[in-house]
């Protein structure tokens, strides 16, 4: 891919992406009607993560951006996850 030739996403793709995101939103609302305690939280977080990945990939155009940008974004999310894990190691096992 050259630097000055940009990938143009067509309208139809965005329409499908929105349809999938709306379906996942409906799914989250639906599963929280059942009180499955920890499982509900886990399911809601997994669906939210899938939605965020879709937004990053298509709406935020990372799929067609350079590898440097993609790696940088991945690192930031990894950093946040790492801080989460370390914080909970402290709170749960002190």
């Amino acid at each position: 891919m050259t630097m000055n030739k940009h990938h143009i996403t067509d309208y139809k793709t965005y329409g499908w992406v929105l349809a999938i995101l709306l379906f996942l939103t409906a799914l989250t609302v639906y599963i929280t009607w059942f009180d499955l305690k920890a499982l509900t939280i886990a399911a809601a977080l997994v669906i939210a993560s899938v939605k965020v990945t879709i937004v990053l990939t298509y709406f935020m155009h990372l799929k067609y951006d350079s590898l440097v940008l993609r790696l940088m974004v991945a690192m930031v999310f990894l950093l946040i996850a790492l801080v989460f894990v370390l914080t909970f190691f402290d709170y749960l096992f002190r």
Binding site: T28, T32, T40, A44, L45, A48, V52, F59
Partner: peptide, 26 residues
Amino acid sequence: LENGGLYWHLVDLIWIFLFPLLYLIS
């Protein structure tokens, strides 16, 4: 416009996590 769009998507990203954590898991 691309950068403005990125900012707008960021607002969406944050809400995607805020919504289940504040409104749904109850």
